[in-house]
């Protein structure tokens, strides 16, 4: 298979600034998403995802300008997530230069929105972000449910069934985050990743828990993910994207080097 697996650095953007700290020695302003995106592009990122965590809806316009500026000079696919609730939000992001939008909470509260958006702009632009948490007890068959509000609120929705439903509604890709692993640096929830990847016909991006380069490779080899997303290991310059890609290639994964 010649299609390469993808590495997607994710930038959390609050009010137009990258948060969670970025520590590149040669970057003038590490909080500037345009500079950070440019750096990731130069390192060979296959795509870039922006997650807008701006709390106030009044300040949401700032992410539009960020996307515009990045799209003017970075010529790889860009995805924007966070606060996408209406068709108007979707169109505004695409017009600003995003190639895909990630819909998360809005899909849980109104699944029809996913159908409406994919019919309007095409499935290839619609990523459904799924935040899942393990709910089965030790020894039981593993089961995961969808959680909202940063993993605090259970919805009772089975993660695998939900992923299948979202693809049915027109999702062109699934961004799967394990809320159990997010921020832990102990690696992806591989059984979850594999279960979702096996269940759906569209590409799956694994997210949540990456602490080293083997975790990225495991996500593809054992989790069967089509792409891997990570934030902190790249932000803190623990590893460059080039190193990550080389490591994955060394483990036998098809990569764009």
């Amino acid at each position: 298979m010649a299609l390469a697996k993808r590495i997607i650095p994710c930038l959390d953007v609050d009010n137009g600034r990258v948060v969670k700290g970025v520590k590149f020695v040669d970057i003038r302003d590490a909080g500037n998403p345009v500079e950070v995106a440019r750096r990731y592009d130069a390192e060979g990122a296959d795509e870039i995802t922006f997650l807008d965590i701006t709390a106030s809806s009044d300040d949401r316009e700032t992410i539009v300008h960020v996307v515009e500026e990045v799209a003017n000079e970075v010529f790889i696919p860009l995805t924007v997530g966070g606060g996408i609730r209406t068709l108007d939000d979707v169109r505004r992001m695409l017009n600003a230069g995003a190639d895909k939008v990630a819909i998360n909470t809005a899909a849980v509260f109104n699944p029809e929105f996913v159908r409406e958006a994919s019919e309007s702009v095409g499935s290839q632009c619609i990523v459904v972000a799924i935040d899942a948490k393990k709910v089965s007890a030790e020894g039981e068959t593993q089961r995961w449910e969808i959680f909202t509000h940063g993993g605090r609120k259970p919805t009772g929705l089975d993660a695998i069934e939900w992923a299948e439903k979202m693809v049915d509604y027109g999702a062109g890709e699934i961004l799967l985050t394990s809320m159990d692993r997010d921020g832990t640096k102990i690696g992806f929830d591989l059984p979850l990743t594999r279960a979702i990847s096996d269940a759906v016909s569209v590409p799956v991006i694994a997210s949540g828990g990456v602490g080293n380069l083997d975790h990225l490779a495991d996500g593809v080899i054992e989790g069967k993910a089509d792409a891997v997303l990570a934030a902190s290991i790249f932000h803190f310059a623990e590893y460059t994207i080039q190193e990550a890609k080389q490591h994955m290639a060394d483990r036998g994964i098809e990569m764009r080097l």
Partner: peptide, 10 residues
């Protein structure tokens, strides 16, 4: 196991 759409760098 072929995912559709064909999405990514080939």
């Amino acid at each position: 196991s072929l995912k559709i759409p064909h999405m990514g760098w080939n």
